[in-house]
Amino acid sequence: MSKIKAFVGKHRSLMLTAALVFAIVFPLFGFKKSMVRIFCRILMYFTLAGSLNITNGYSGQTSLGHAGFYCIGAYVMAILTTRFQISFWPVLLLSGIGAAVAGLIISVPTLRLKGIYLSIITLGASEVIRIIALNWEGVTGGSFGIKDIPRPTFFGFTFDSPLKFYYLFLGVAVIFLLISYRLIHSRVGRSWMSIRENELAAKSLGVRTAPAKMMNFAYGAFWAGIIGGIYAVYVQYIDSAVFSLDEGFNIMSMIIIGGQGTLIGPIVGSIVVNGLTELLRPIGVWRFVMYAALIIVMMWFRPQGLMGESNSILAGAKIKMRKAGKTGGKKEAIS
């Protein structure tokens, strides 16, 4: 086990390049469109779960309202492209910014809240956003939703097939990973993690926790908005029913299963959750039982998730202590 780890550690950039090449090449092997749609879904949820992981995993603020930011991004895209015929790319940025602003607005009054109290506020905010989308008929189309959202084009190249969207989702996922990696390894990222481990201690060491937390929320929400924007043009029809609390929990289950506080965790979580949805389809209603059982087993054996960082505080004391005894503590707290 440790040998594999050492090998991966030594040839990290090689492994990452290989993974990227694999991700680029393998959909070309004649998969059916419906299969490619599943790959799209995995990539889409990867970025979505990854953005939630920024808040929940890195700064330890348990947000349950990610579907709300996702909703804002989708509606910004749908409204601006159908009503005002603005091109996809600038609107995509606006989708992200719109969601980031919402994230900021929610984070300001919740700066002093922690744990369950913060979770409940985010939960409520998510529902408020959905209900506004449902009832503000003049703008959002109310319960009729918005249809005929135009496909994006790029210098005359139209994204009109699942395969093309796959590469769009892949591109966004890679950009998200790169930026997040840089950010997490910067001063900002370290201040997020210090808040996660012990907010008071962080404060005493001169970390300005309020701006750090606000930025954390806004950054996570930004990517949820971006994905919302792409989702809108991908499915071409949205209504508020998609962005329910269930969706928020679905995204959260991916980071719980994959592992919070790591960049790789959401990838694994998205593959497992979306893969299971397809794999277990033949057993009908029993798949919910299987799904629940998996989460319970996970909590039992690996509370930190499949790829969870074992020397994080989220990992539980037992694993943490054993790990500390074995390796004498690791320098870097993230993957």
């Binding site: 469109k33 749609r37 879904r41 699942p162 499915v235 389809r281």
Partner: peptide
Amino acid sequence: DSKGDQNQSAELASKFAD
């Protein structure tokens, strides 16, 4: 089974179409 979920419904339609 689309679960009454729009995403599922769209994906299953695609599966049938394939």
